[in-house]
Design a protein around this nucleic acid. Structure first.
Lengths: 332, 332
DNA sequence: ACGCGTTTTGCAACCGGTTGCAAAAGCGGA
DNA sequence: TCCGCTTTTGCAACCGGTTGCAAAACGCGT
């Protein structure tokens, strides 16, 4: 049923090699045969089998895209940017939803079976060991939104979460809050730990301010709302730096439902600057994570590794910046 | 570098066929050789190359997952459900982001090159012809969230958009609104057209009520907000059935910014019941589209077509139902 | 028309598996 | 132990391409 190289060769009256060569860039074919082959190919509706050729070339142009964040709206933006970026370079994303599993073994095995050229782990909650498992298996890997480490074993592209924590602390202090809280995401996520460490470190430099902290059970609306309700019940701080935007939105809803005003009674500072944060009915002051750049850089890195698999691992960090909207009181 | 069938065969002291057979279910191998092979395989860390085998078996277990909706939060839920559902059955989603293109040709060609076993088109805005192009190319295809047609050329799984329009109209009339509007998504989307047709049809049965309509430029927050601002400026209806939830949320924000109350001054009815619609700070009354069932059914259908490629095309429609929340006045 | 260097071509082996077929091995009964 | 039947095994061809190599064709100068 499907038309193969052989069919085209016969029709064009040339050898199979000739056909193969007209379809591989930079191969030696005369203009005459190329014409004959192309004619035959279009007549038959031929298109080469990418998987068969991968057998000999060792390249599939498949890239595993692994994530466990299928409930945070910002990841729709992430998937959009990744798929477009990969497609632009002729690469194909093989999507892996890791929602339940924790061990990398299955994914490694599966992606090896499909001979992916490389893997992007897009997650801020997976531990570094996860990405490292791919490296051990000899698969080029980039961990996007991963934890910064001074001695990374795999390529990491993302932000400096500690610095983010510091920026957040400074933003709150600068606005005159002297009783502030860190409302983190799940405590075991590396991103939470690092943001908290940075936040605390900076707050230590401002001993006049009281600092507290607690953690939500997930990066989700409901978790943020529930935790903020608890905090309000026991007497809240003046402002909170929340784990991420969706958590912040949950927190916001709790604050407003309690009859308190934002930012007058309680200030909220998010992180990510996802599209929704800019919606007029949310209007969240937040720290912007440059996801476009992170993703572009991740793709560039994984592409670079195709030619240079043992490239020395590096950490690429992008600066974050405050986006001023309506949930923190203005600078005085 | 990678360990192959041959390596295992040599180590186990058997033929390559023997190794192949131990890894294919239902093949004839004695317990003794199976043991030998398995031992050798684990020692070498062998895992079979799925692409090489696809060459002879004709099955890749790859499923193309095509969408052009990378900006509507409900599609994150859709991708989550699709990837999980496919993975559970040992299938691998090859994700295609169709954001810019309109013609199916490139996607068809590309997915043919990768020998996908089947394709799911997950989009409420792509025309039926798009999915049909895959069928013509001999690739099993299911159009999820596609347009219902009484004589479908490809399998369609989704809802009866006309019936949705009727349900919406009835919901508004039953609540005593007598000046109602249809605030649709993009006019060229088949889903918009059908919902409008159903809505209008039902409203014709209630001539006491005034009916109007207009269209937003996209299924998006900003489009919904902008259109609602325009409507308010020129004097709004009492209630609107909006194209979908995200459009509704945009409309809501415009209503509230204009100092009007919901549902007292203007009622809003959405469609989809995405997770966010249930957030307490949104609390949107909406028509629930059973996406779990739609996706499960889509997967079942595409799986069924693997064994029966010429299966007679059918339309599978799931009923929608009203989810009562806070943006329409209660039944009187 | 001839010779030489360059380009183009086809052959055949190979990528990593699968599978029909015939031969070999295993098994139970006499 | 031998026979006949069933199960297991290996051979070899094949899936749809790619590629090194040697032979053929070409271009060009004389």
């Amino acid at each position: 049923m499907p038309v193969t190289l052989k069919d085209v060769a016969e029709r064009a009256g040339v050898s199979r090699s000739a056909v193969s060569r007209t379809f591989t860039a930079g191969a030696s074919v005369s203009a005459k045969t190329r014409r004959k082959v192309e004619k035959a190919a279009t007549e038959l509706g031929y298109s080469p089998n990418a998987l068969a050729s991968s057998l000999t070339t060792g390249r599939t142009k498949l890239i595993g895209l692994i994530s466990n964040n299928f409930h945070n709206p910002i990841f729709l933006e992430v998937f959009d940017l990744f798929t477009r970026g990969l497609q632009e370079r002729g690469l194909r994303p093989l999507l892996v939803n890791l929602s339940d599993e924790v061990a990398p073994d299955n994914s490694v095995q599966m992606l090896r079976q499909y001979s992916v050229d490389g893997v992007v782990v897009a997650s801020s909650t997976l531990p570094p060991e996860f990405a490292e498992a791919f490296r051990s298996a000899g698969i080029p890997v980039v961990h996007s939104f991963g934890r910064y480490s001074s001695s990374p074993k795999v390529h990491v592209v993302g932000i400096d979460n500690m610095e983010c924590g510091r920026i957040a602390a400074r933003a709150l202090v600068d606005r005159g809050y002297d009783d502030v809280g860190f409302l983190g995401g799940p405590e075991r996520a590396t991103s939470t730990q690092d943001r908290f460490a940075g936040f605390r470190e900076e707050m230590l430099r401002h001993p006049q301010a009281r600092t507290r902290h607690s953690f939500a059970t997930a990066y989700s609306f409901q978790a943020g709302r529930a935790e903020m309700q608890r905090l309000i019940a026991e007497g809240p701080a003046q402002a909170y730096f929340c784990g991420d935007d969706v958590l912040s939105i949950g927190a916001l809803s709790a604050v407003r439902d309690a009859g308190l005003r934002v930012p007058e009674d309680i200030g909220i500072l998010g992180l990510n600057d996802m599209e929704m944060a800019g919606w007029e009915n949310i209007n969240l002051t937040t720290i912007r994570q440059p996801i476009r750049q992170i993703i572009r850089s991740s793709i560039e890195l994984v592409v670079a590794m195709l030619d240079e698999p043992d490239r020395y691992p590096e950490a690429r960090l992008f600066p974050c910046s405050l986006v001023e909207r309506g949930t923190l009181r203005p600078l005085s």
